[in-house]
Write a protein that binds this DNA or RNA. Sequence first.
DNA 1: ACTTAACCCAGTAAGTTAGTCAACTATTAC
DNA 2: GTAATAGTTGACTAACTTACTGGGTTAAGT
Lengths: 163, 163
Amino acid sequence: MRLTSKGRYAVTAMLDLAFHSQLKPVTLIDIAARQTISLSYLEQLFARLRRANLVKGVRGPGGGYSLCGDAHNISIAEIVAAVGERIDSTKCGGEANCQKTHECLTHDLWMDLGDHVKSYLEKITLADLLAKNRVQEVAERQDQHAQQTIEIHNHADLMHTLQ
Amino acid sequence: MRLTSKGRYAVTAMLDLAFHSQLKPVTLIDIAARQTISLSYLEQLFARLRRANLVKGVRGPGGGYSLCGDAHNISIAEIVAAVGERIDSTKCGGEANCQKTHECLTHDLWMDLGDHVKSYLEKITLADLLAKNRVQEVAERQDQHAQQTIEIHNHADLMHTLQ
DNA sequence: ACTTAACCCAGTAAGTTAGTCAACTATTAC
DNA sequence: GTAATAGTTGACTAACTTACTGGGTTAAGT
């Protein structure tokens, strides 16, 4: 089992998408700024998410990414799997050949743990997370902060053109 | 969350110990042979297990390792924690400062997942695993195979001294 | 003394993570 | 048509971890 920043970034970005892409596509630049994730790294993750048919990209001005389908139908397990994070903890990957031809002493333990975690993450959808108060609060805080950043940025641009 | 061979080896070795160290200490050489784990790597893991007071070592001939206390009181979570595997999946380690001063969008999700897995592993003890039929079967198979290996080894030694 | 086996420490090849950089393509707006 | 936007692709890399090897020291039994 290996659940690192890769999966965390992917789920966070997808949740940001679910929150902001109701009306129009969201650019990775915006997501990167709001969630403080490297843009280039996000691009790599979204390449995988696109291949897994979880998001669709729209090119050109006004483009960006939107969810493929409804937030109710996208589970955390799917997102995590799409970017290649292994939930399984066995050595053999479920093949039961962890000790040469046979299973190892703890094979069943790790199988059970893997199943447990998998079903836990399968039961949680993006819509479930979106419905939580805490998530709404954090998202709104991030929007405000991002708005401020844009204003500072515009101000800097203005000062620059005036000089 | 990161559950790799390190934790798997540690739990497997501890289970082997629980199975074999009823009468006298078990050497790491035996465990390494039965569970096909590198001896030197096992030594490193047992250094940590010893520091965590999960096993005690006895030096000299007839020495080896035994469990500290009863198998009913040693949980998988303790073993995994002793060798330094993080069950937590958050960026911040529970500090809720994943995004500079505040929590990130998915902080609660990873906290809940971590708690879930932790309590799952806390509820399973070495004695629980030992009671399972499958575990008994695998352990007995390993004992037979190890016995064969010793016989082959002795035979080779005999042939060597005869020459 | 000699053997056994725990104990300790330094080093290391291979793999992964998280990231950068650079180029290319499709789409829209002017 | 041309510039700007934004997705798409691929090569490359510093830092880190894992799993492992090897060499040595110390304590205990025979």
